[in-house]
Design a protein around this nucleic acid. Structure first.
Lengths: 132, 132
DNA sequence: CAGCATCCTCAAAGATACTG
DNA sequence: CAGTATCTTTGAGGATGCTG
């Protein structure tokens, strides 16, 4: 029985099917999301693994205030980070990854590393493809 | 000098900045894409690591014919898979991952495994969050 | 400072019909 | 079979203005 080149018992059902296909797909879409990835990685590498709103805004070039708000809220809802409000003047809010959020770092690094190592090759492939 | 909880030399510049920030971001968005992930994983696990169009359509529940075409073309352009046309009747086309495409499998498995291991906990977190 | 609310745009993606 | 072409819809996301 040929099973493809997969080294893991990862058949169609376990990838797309699973117990709750829609749930797995939805979450995969989310952890694969550009802003989620940048937010989590940025937060992890900021001093103390904590950062306030404005620091995240600076750390993630190109993100709009709205998307930062939306993304951060969504990740908080998923239990990947915490939001702590300090009732000072001016207002201060600090975000920090939870244990669950930190557990996501290694897989994310894996993906980011791959991109950093291979994007040149992908670029070349595109150039060649477009020439045809 | 505190550098956050990152264990890798992954400062802001190397994640978001890099040599070509836009390129890295764009490619990350792509390899994080739902359909790209499902397509690559499905292809890898199909017998021989090869599959024809209709097989992929069956292997990826919910994908439309159009999105399958678009995704497969895009991955071919990026050099992640090859498209081989057999001029028979009826027509036959086979897709296969390239070495570059296969090199993407481990990082993808990492992400998928994380989702499969933690989506229940995420679900609980959402329920709790929504209760407030 | 750290947002929320609102309006608006445009690209991603589904549906449908047709073809080499 | 494996697409392409076209139309339509959805919603991600930007811009702007306001507030605790």
């Amino acid at each position: 029985m040929k099973k493809g080149i997969s080294k893991k018992p990862l058949d169609s059902a376990s990838v797309c099917g699973h117990e709750d296909p829609a749930a797995v797909r939805e979450l995969l879409t989310k952890v694969g999301d550009k802003w989620s990835i940048f937010l989590i990685l940025s937060l992890a590498q900021l001093p103390g693994g904590r950062a306030r709103f404005s620091e995240l805004e600076k750390a993630i070039p190109g993100i709009s205030q709205r998307m930062l708000t939306v993304t951060v809220r969504s990740l908080e809802r998923d239990g990947l980070l915490t939001r702590e409000l300090f009732a000072e003047v001016p207002l201060r809010v600090e975000y920090e990854l939870t244990a669950l959020g930190r557990s996501l770092l290694p897989p994310m690094w894996g993906l980011v590393d791959w991109v950093k190592e291979n994007w040149q090759q992908v670029k070349e492939s595109r150039t060649e493809f477009d020439a045809r």
